[in-house]
Design a protein around this nucleic acid. Structure first.
Length: 511
RNA sequence: CGGGGUGUAGCUCAGCUUGGCAGAGCGCCUGGUUUGGGACCAGGAGGCCGUAGGUUCAAAUCCUAUCACCCCGACCA
């Protein structure tokens, strides 16, 4: 079962990324250009993200609902900037059936009276519905979320980071006042940041998008930006304050406390399967995927070292003793439909996280690599040598450390402790990387020079301006990622215009 | 939509210039020897050579058309 090797990062970074995904079995290309198949290993990560983020969203009072995938084309045009932003990447449904022509070839037939657009996002549909549901201030706020797929006909795609169809969550809210909507926007950005850092161990920079980079139709957009291993930045999540743009376009009016008809204030916010791309690009190494414990489908892979010549009863007995210590009382053994010789134990039914024992008849080395490239946080090895001493070898994926442990010491508490340690190691490493690859520029020349020398984030004083940002992007390929929240009040000079300004921004190449 | 390139086994590709039995490596299956960091040997399965037409005794190879995909630009969570 020896497998293809993973291309080292320094040789070809995008090939490495592709190899990691393939070897971990996360996703595959599909016959449809730009659309990926998310395989079980990858989908388990998405389910974990969903579960843990959904919990946070609901805690804040939002409720889940589902809206149609098809949107009447006319809806798109109701908010001028919005249609401008998405028109170029909409898949359009124009017919309702297929019929055979004279050559017996199938042809689209039954043209629709009005073409439908496959949602690139659901602002239009959801706000249309909101307009029917909102009558008075008593109906507000509406805090709603949906988990769904969306489609944007992308020119260039990469697995997880940019695909034409992707899975996401889109929250949409309606508020009485501007302040309340603004607060909601920030509250969700905070939720995303906390989630990325605490669950995915991906450090992010919170900030506001410039006018040029904001969401089409938003008054302003906030983002969290992650710096990936190759020095490019990734917008990992966005939260939009939509002002009254959509409430005016879709006529969301309510009777206020003052008996006046007012337009409501709306927000929207989302994160997508792109987070899995961020996860891969933040933590993985030349050996393959590295997963933070919170989203790893399996926390521990136990690899018995078996030798056909010897009786393996003792090894199996020792592993069973280890399991009886390590598994929580309510662990559940998975019934396997086909006998693949991997025993799987669910240790937490809420998260579906598992501990597995790999009894397959492969060489030990093969099995080690198998679990390593899948990013499983911990591996435990037990062979004839360890039986006598009731010990085992514990290997940590994230920093490749190994330790000999007594099997009696491996308890649920020990696992919890390891989980915390691994999270801390991974987060600190990622944080350190971000810091080390963040530099400051005092002039446009220096910005250009820094970006040329090495990818990464460059912080500098800059007055956001559509035209200038366009020029800079043409000249450097880099764009303003965001205007970070951690501004000082110090006065500086804009690197491009030389005007005095207090605004500092991050520039970077981006996905 | 502009510029460049490629379509041959599951994957990576050779073969095409100069037409003559459809190939290699990896992966897969079977058997054996192995087994503490990616094993080895033997055997085997797997092909509309992108598609359609043409030239020819004969086409993966030459010609024409067509489709698809990839790379570089313009657009993007």
């Amino acid at each position: 079962m020896s497998q293809q090797t993973i291309t080292p990062r320094n040789r070809n970074h995008s090939q490495w990324y592709h190899d990691v995904i393939q070897s971990a079995g996360l996703a595959d290309y599909s016959p449809v250009r730009g659309c990926m198949v998310i395989r079980p290993e990858g989908y388990a990560i998405w389910e974990s993200i969903q579960r843990q983020l959904d919990k946070r969203i609901k805690r804040l009072g939002h409720v889940n609902a589902y809206f149609p995938m098809l949107i009447p084309q006319s809806f798109l045009t109701k908010e001028a900037e919005h249609v401008e932003g998405f028109a170029m990447e909409c898949a359009v449904v124009t017919h309702s059936k297929l019929e055979k022509d004279s050559g017996n070839q199938l042809q689209p037939a039954g043209p629709l009276e009005e073409p439908m657009v496959i949602r690139p996002t659901s602002e239009t549909m959801i706000n249309h519905m909101f307009s029917q549901w909102v009558q008075s201030y008593r109906d507000l706020p509406i805090l709603m979320n949906q988990w769904c797929n969306v489609m944007r006909w992308e020119m260039r795609t990469r697995l997880f980071l940019r695909t034409s169809e992707f899975l996401w969550q889109e929250g949409h809210t309606v508020h009485e006042t501007e302040e309340e909507a603004e607060q909601e926007t920030l509250r969700m950005l905070d939720t995303y940041a906390e989630f990325c850092e605490k669950v995915l161990a991906v450090p992010v920079i919170k900030g506001r998008k410039t006018n040029k980079e904001k969401f089409a139709g938003a008054v302003h957009t906030y983002s969290i930006e992650a710096l990936l291993q190759d020095g490019k930045a990734l917008q990992a999540g966005t939260s939009h304050f939509l002002g009254q743009n959509f409430s005016k376009g879709f006529d969301i009016q309510y009777l206020s406390r003052e008996q006046k008809l007012e337009h409501a204030w709306t927000t929207s916010w989302g994160v997508s399967t792109r987070l899995i791309g961020a996860l891969i690009m933040t933590h993985s190494d030349d050996q393959g995927l590295v997963l933070p414990p919170a989203v790893a489908p399996q926390l521990i892979a136990i690899v018995p070292i078996l030798n056909k010549k010897q009786d393996d009863t003792e090894v199996r007995n020792t592993i069973n003793q280890l399991l009886s210590n390590l598994l929580p009382k309510d662990a559940i053994k998975i019934e396997s439909a086909h006998n693949d010789d991997i025993e799987k134990y669910i240790i937490d039914e809420n998260t579906n996280q598992q501990i597995v024992v790999d009894y397959r008849k492969h060489r030990p080395g093969d099995k080690r690599y198998y679990w390593e490239k899948r990013g499983i946080p911990l591996r435990i090895e037990i062979g004839p040598r360890e039986v006598e001493s009731r010990s085992c070898m514990v290997k940590r994926r994230c920093d490749d450390t190994r330790a000999t442990m007594q099997i009696d010491d491996l308890t649920p508490d020990w696992l919890q402790d390891q989980t915390n340690t691994i999270y801390n190691l991974m987060f600190e490493k990622a944080q350190q990387f971000t810091q080390q690859n963040t530099r400051t520029a005092n002039s446009y020349e220096q910005l250009k020079q820094l970006l040329e020398e090495d990818a990464g984030l460059v912080r500098c004083y800059f007055e956001p301006n559509d035209e200038i940002e366009k020029i800079i992007q043409e000249e450097t390929k880099a764009a303003v990622r965001n205007i970070p929240f951690d501004q000082t009040d110090d006065l500086g000079t804009c690197i491009y215009t030389g005007n005095p300004t207090t605004t500092q921004v991050y520039f970077a190449l981006a996905y």
